[in-house]
Design a protein around this nucleic acid. Structure first.
Lengths: 138, 138
DNA sequence: AATAACAAGTTGCATATACAACTTTTTGTA
DNA sequence: TACAAAAAGTTGTATATGCAACTTGTTATT
């Protein structure tokens, strides 16, 4: 008898979030695999596309990622030829990067909407309410 | 003008879950730091304490972690002297492991309750509703 | 018991992430 | 302008995680 958490359980908030993130990330990674990128990479590409010149520090704060982790994520994008080489003056996509970002956005839009529909309004609202309590207002 | 997601936004479900997991994980890791373990390690220790002899495959399914990742998480526990060396016949804590698991459980119980109180019932219920839609029933 | 099929576990390789310590850049102020 | 302080970025080191391919162990069927 495996005591997986029932709704009334005192389940671990962090453990639950990590499990949910793993499950959902897998789904998004599958969708982006055709473009040879992960969700994390696609997400950065799309944000830099939307805000050319954004700084690592700002992205790090926005995504609540440690600056050193962001530094490496950005280096990976650059190694793949998606960023120009002026990292320290703000981040800019190459033409190849811009084209990829656009393709990723198409994939993301369809997928994210599909996931929202599958989960249903109540579930998504539940996540929204939770987020609002936890994330620093921007 | 940074377009952080507002409640009515079509924010990325996966991106949001990952950010929440990072934020909350940091808090739990801080709490466990005094014992020299991470949340992931403490979580495994506590589960093995509760179910001595559990298999990696079962833990992997329970936590929705890939079996190879679980293999490595378990190896780490063993390197630290918290698991007996019969990994392939089920997982068992050493005496040191059991003592550590108990200390971690004390920390976890207080912290998880504090986090729940801080977040409030609505937020926690929101997460619960979300989880129920996403996670396979066990 | 033999073997084929399946399940469990491991290893190679890669990304995502954190903390600490360090370097470089920017900024505010004397 | 010069310089001290703060911010931004990088690197060393470690954990957490996934996929593919492989090995080992288990089970069902003949």
């Amino acid at each position: 008898m495996i005591p997986e958490q029932t709704p009334t359980d005192n389940y671990c908030i962090a453990g639950r979030l990590r499990m949910l993130a793993r499950v959902v990330t897998g789904r998004y990674n599958d969708a982006f695999a055709s473009e040879g990128v992960t969700l994390a990479q696609a997400g950065l590409l799309m944000r830099i596309f939307a805000q050319p010149g954004i700084r690592q520090a700002q992205l790090a704060k926005l995504l609540q990622i440690e600056k050193s982790a962001m530094s490496r994520d950005v280096q990976l994008l650059q190694r793949n030829g998606w960023l120009t080489d002026n990292r320290r003056n703000g981040l800019f996509l190459t033409e190849e990067g811009r084209l990829l970002a656009k393709r990723c956005h198409k994939i993301w839009k369809v997928l994210n909407q599909a996931v929202r529909v599958e989960l249903g309004e109540d579930a998504v609202n539940g996540l929204t309410i939770f987020s609002e309590k936890l994330l620093p207002k921007q």
